[in-house]
Nucleic acid binder design. Structure first.
Length: 560
RNA sequence: GGGCCGAUAGCUCAGUCGGUAGAGCUGCGGACUUUUAAUCCGUAGGUCCCGGGUUCGAGUCCCGGUCGGCCCA
């Protein structure tokens, strides 16, 4: 029962109709409202280059018309961009356009343009225009192109969001990122920063002799991390495939193969919840270096992060200065290095719970022993001992400990609930103003199925994670290259899986075979690029650094 | 998965005790030859997220749902 008569015309429809009518007028004159013959005027100049070309005429952000014109010497400039503001003062109009490099004002004078001045009525905010003219400045010191020509290159049918507030509806921002990027310029800066971060990462790794490689993203087994995978299917081979959760095992095969220093920056997929720190697909950097240990990699991590930040600062000085100021942490001083047992002991002391403080004198393991016994009634006193104790997530600490199957998992659980939430508070600069990144190192082997055991204390592994202001950023270790030990660890994982652990790894026979050919001693490193960009640009959500984050599909939207 | 919060014009937001749906920006018409969120005059624009309930009457109260945000897992 179609009911077309009931069709209502919304305000937006009316605007779109008006803009289509303007496009029709342009067509009626014999011009194309979707023209693609820009180059007939010669090369288009980036407005950022124009601005730089007359930089010496600038004083305190303002340009003097005489100084600009003297430098420009009447040369005709040719610019293209999107109209972001439109103001008319009668016979003189101002059009602000933006291209990838910045913004510039166009001045349109009725006396100069004559009849063509009226065509300005066909231009709306949001249109893409082309203009030619000579470089000058307005009386108020705004760098401007005094136009001899302007035309619509691309007519925008839909109106942009409100000019002052921009687009703030978070859902719309993610669903229509193209609008977000136009309406909210700082958003575009974050994605420019992301590109610089990835490039800087490549440059630094190349400098250190690493080879970039690409390994499969569709795996037949689950490995390299503990996470639930996405499952897919290959028709011809009638084979189940998993989207990779990590590239680790393939990269280490390449170390066996003699490439010695390899890295990959690529998409990984984890079939888990969505949060401000998790998107189902994300970008991971992993690198592997033969003849290095996790101690080397701690040093290199500091070099890498400072190097990336320095290159970002060089590429985007103004936004970087703002981000750096807003950061609650600093990269400028040596990162803290704390064994996990020590981190637990320190955290226990800070709770001021007498039993815990006493146990902490004998180290983190002793604290774990105290917690191993049932909390019983003591939990009431414990939880009230201090402001720090009140902040502990007691319910999950208890639940987490109950699930543990061994000493290593218990130490890790204690670390996770006692120490990790406070890393940003506990490791600070001398003046206390900012947090200092901290390497937590020497993880129990039971929670590190691919890491090499410590020679002196085989119940620990040569592994670290880096936390920047409490946010996990990197995970690295000396690689386990003993095929028999690795086979044992895989078996333990397979048993976990058989008991219903959906995040456990599969037994990878081919990987064991590779290790049996001999992998040189090596250390490997993983870092989430998304989280790194969040950290450096002081973004609150991973969705602010992923152009098109996963969202539920739109519902109830009629096809337009 | 749980808790809290939100959804009203294209955008940003008000909407009192349940009683005719509001503003600014945008749009449209007009004035203005140096604007900078231009200004001034006029004018148009609504599936109040969806479904149900209570009521003489629901944007408002109740129930269910959808989508989103934040926090926790």
């Amino acid at each position: 029962m179609p009911d077309t008569d009931r069709e209502t015309r919304s305000a937006e429809d009316a605007i779109i109709e008006g803009r289509r009518a303007k496009a029709a007028r342009i067509r009626a004159r014999g011009e194309n409202p979707f023209a693609n013959d820009v180059q007939r005027h010669g090369a288009v100049e980036a407005v950022g280059d124009l601005r730089r070309s007359v930089a010496s005429a600038e004083r305190g952000g303002k340009f003097s018309p005489e100084a600009v014109e003297e430098i420009a010497r009447g040369r005709t400039v040719h610019v293209c961009g999107r109209v972001v503001a439109l103001r008319s003062a009668g016979g003189l109009s101002f059009v602000r356009i933006r291209d990838r490099s910045g913004e510039v004002q166009l001045m349109l004078d009725q006396a100069t343009l004559g009849d063509r001045y009226e065509r300005l009525a066909e231009v709306d905010v949001g249109d893409v225009v082309e203009a030619t003219g000579r470089l000058t400045a307005s009386k108020r010191g705004e760098l401007s192109v005094a136009c001899t020509e302007i035309r619509v290159l691309t007519k925008a049918f839909r109106p942009l969001p409100e000019k002052w507030h921009g687009l703030t509806d978070v859902e719309l921002r993610y669903r229509q990122r193209y609008v977000d990027l136009i309406a909210n310029p700082p958003v575009a800066d974050v994605f420019r920063a992301r590109s610089h971060v990835v490039r800087a990462t490549r440059e630094i790794l190349e400098q250190h002799g690493f080879l970039e490689v690409e390994t499969p993203t569709m795996h037949t087994l689950i490995g390299g991390a503990t996470a639930r995978p996405f499952v897919t299917h290959h028709n011809t081979l009638d084979m189940r495939l998993f989207m990779r959760i990590a590239p680790e095992l393939y990269l280490k095969r390449l170390v066996v193969g003699g490439l010695e220093r390899v890295y990959e920056i690529g998409r990984c997929y984890r079939n888990e919840g969505i949060s401000t720190r998790h998107n189902p697909e994300f970008t991971m950097l992993e690198f592997y270096q033969a003849y290095a240990t996790y101690e080397h990699l701690m040093n290199f991590t500091e070099v890498l992060l400072r190097g990336i930040d320095a290159k970002l600062a060089e590429a985007m000085p103004e936004p970087h200065a703002q981000w750096k100021e807003a950061r609650p942490f600093t990269l400028d001083q040596p990162f803290a290095r704390v064994p996990m047992e020590r981190a637990v002991a320190i955290a226990a002391e800070r709770t001021a719970i007498p039993e815990w403080v006493a146990a902490a004198q004998d180290g983190g393991r002793a604290v774990v022993e105290v917690l191993r016994a049932d909390f019983g009634e003591r939990i009431k006193d414990w939880a009230r001992s201090s402001p720090r104790a009140k902040k502990l997530d007691w319910g999950n600490l208890r639940k987490g400990l109950a699930k543990c199957e061994n000493e290593g998992e218990r130490l890790f659980a204690c670390y996770e609930y006692l120490a990790e939430p406070f890393l940003g508070d506990d490791y600070r600069t001398d003046d206390g103003a900012r947090s200092v990144p901290v390497f937590i190192k020497d993880y129990p082997f039971e929670v590190s199925p691919l890491a090499r055991r410590n020679d002196a204390r085989p119940e620990l592994t040569d592994r670290f994670e880096l936390f920047v202001h409490g946010r996990e950023l990197c995970n690295a270790f000396s690689e386990l290259n003993d095929p028999d030990d690795q086979a044992d660890r895989f078996r333990a994982q397979a048993e976990k899986k058989a008991r219903g652990d959906e995040e456990a790894m599969d037994y990878d026979e081919d990987y064991i075979r590779a290790l049996e050919y001999g992998m040189p001693p090596a250390a490997g490193f993983g870092m989430g690029i998304d989280r790194l960009v969040m950290t450096l640009t002081h973004s609150a959500s991973i969705r602010d650094v992923i152009l098109f984050p996963l969202l539920r599909p739109e519902t109830g939207q009629a096809v337009r």
